[in-house]
Amino acid sequence: MEIATSPNGTRLLKVWFAILVVFLYAPLLLLLIFSFNDNNLPVFPLRGFTTDAYRQFVSNPELKASIVTSVKVAALSSLGAIILGLLASIVLVRRDFFGRGGVSALLLSPLVVPYIALAIGLLVFFNEASLPLGIKSIVMGHIVVSIPYAILILVPRLERLDARLEEAARDLGAGALQTFRLITFPLLLPALVSAYLVAFVLSFDEIVIAYFVNGQVTTFPLYLFSTLRFPTLLPQVLAVACVVMAASAFILIGAEIARRVIERRLGTDLSESAAEPA
């Protein structure tokens, strides 16, 4: 007997799964449909097919400027997050020390602390320190919230990395840095790229922290937020939303597949084959 479910149970689970997939994707599909609709408002009935909205957003300088800003913020903050996340992950996996639990709790806490509290804290901090608000302050905040994601991606990879490879390098006379550069880093690279992309997409989309510490700078989500007051801009917003979501999904899924393939080729994963589905 299949103990997990009965045939009827399986059918019910499949139906529920299908319902949830529809629930998750229907709104996105509606955005896509209305981004091609020949109407300034996303309303029924559909009038006809047009790519005007896509042409408009490509020639909207403010929108383009906001995307450039967000790319800068995301590129810098995810770089910071993977460097700091890598340092923390190495220590958390390879060393034991007093206060390890507290350190790991501190580094992971931005996962659950409401962003509004983080954002307000940064606002107060930058004000007290008399530091200007702008790209830099957003980047600093985004690093805080991206570090836990970097750690959650890097720690399992480090744990499955065969420590004997590093030991062999050390036995053959390599220094600590040389071992890291020649052994650990190349083996970690796929996971680092993965962490970088996740942090990048997270930062590109982040609005709460950006909203409170942006100063005069407009990031992409902030620009979208500002357009809500001008309904005529809505078709462009829908169009650009579709492009951005498709690009993010493409990047993340592509990176995930690439990472799995590369890590399997590297063949250092002693446990992965056991974890694979039959």
Binding site: D205, E206, L224, L238
Partner: peptide
């Protein structure tokens, strides 16, 4: 993974 804010926007629409 794709986007928090854009999905919010979708529901507003």
């Amino acid at each position: 993974l794709v986007s928090y804010f854009l999905r919010l926007l979708a529901w507003k629409v």
